[in-house]
Design a protein around this nucleic acid. Structure first.
Lengths: 168, 168
DNA sequence: CTTGACCCTGTAGTGACTACAGGGTGTGCA
DNA sequence: TGCACACCCTGTAGTCACTACAGGGTCAAG
């Protein structure tokens, strides 16, 4: 089948499918004489595997590793277990951080019940006073020793800059 | 104070401070004759405001809006409340999605208790069979009608491609 | 004068996509 | 046969919030 049909069957964007191929995640299909990609049922399964793992929040690198483990029948599955364990731990940490964040936001939200001018808004006042060093409801009630700016919300994927990849 | 001192006092990276200035989030400071940035205490407060909001998971765009509301004393705080409400709803959704994901991963993890060769690994078998259309423990026990690939894990910030920004 | 810490601008990269430019292919209809 | 439209292709660039680096300048202490 053509890439559009594969996209329809899997719910995955055409451009994402090409991206996965470029990233070496999905095997390159045969081409027609006009250069169109022609996918087999096996490759449909391949993509479904990838999408399934994506739906479980795994990174592309992890999925690549899993696929390698799958291809190597003699590989001990200890590594697979470890990979899933690490993913579970990561997600668990995210759940905890987000639940804390939710509580913090609700506490902040509670500072303003009615419509005011911005100058009188409890939310804004809290944020401004916190910026000036005052304690705030979004952070104080949880017994933290510091304001915890850098620990409160662990952004999902802290982006690093350049690697040495393809370095001249 | 110089940018390095500001970074030390706030726990924010020098490069991130410059980035916030470039993005128009933080006001540009005065410069010394050598071109070094010189920050005031007021700008320290400005940055703390930004960091505080970041710690609450707000996007830079939202923080920009909040700062604009703050500067406009006559602005009704209804928009501020709405912004915080939207943030609460977003975080809540993320919590729910991640909790579901955690359960899914635990169910999958439960398919393999001992060390096997990869060919016999319950986790891998589950993933492979799911890719072939079979029901799986990570998705089935929650009564979902479909495999839910595109809804299971809502990635934090789905990146869109090009906007028309700076379009010639 | 040298050294090391710090400063600057501009550019490029991270991860997982997503959009677009510019061009080619295939099919159905007038 | 020509046209219109849907689809295909490659290559490039952008999203978001950073993060890293190249190449060069400044400052202070030894």
């Amino acid at each position: 089948m053509l890439i559009g049909e594969l996209a329809r069957q899997t719910g995955c964007e055409v451009e994402t499918i090409r991206y996965y191929e470029r990233e070496g995640l999905l095997s390159a299909p045969q081409r027609s004489s006009s250069g169109y990609r022609r996918y087999t049922a096996e490759q449909l399964g391949e993509l479904n595997f990838i999408l399934h793992c994506r739906s479980l929040g795994m990174s592309l690198a992890d999925i690549r590793n899993l696929a390698a483990f799958k291809a190597d029948h003699d590989h001990d599955c200890e590594d697979i277990n470890l990979l899933i364990d690490q993913q579970i731990a990561k997600v668990h940490q995210q759940v905890e951080a987000l639940r804390l964040l939710e509580q913090q936001l609700l506490a902040l939200r509670d500072k303003c019940h009615e419509s005011h001018a911005a100058a009188d808004c409890g939310i804004l006042q809290t944020l401004v006073e916190a910026a000036e060093g005052a304690p705030c409801v979004c952070h104080t009630p949880f017994g933290q020793d510091n304001h915890g700016h850098s620990q409160d919300y662990d952004h999902t994927a802290k982006k690093n800059g350049r690697s040495n990849k393809d370095r001249p």
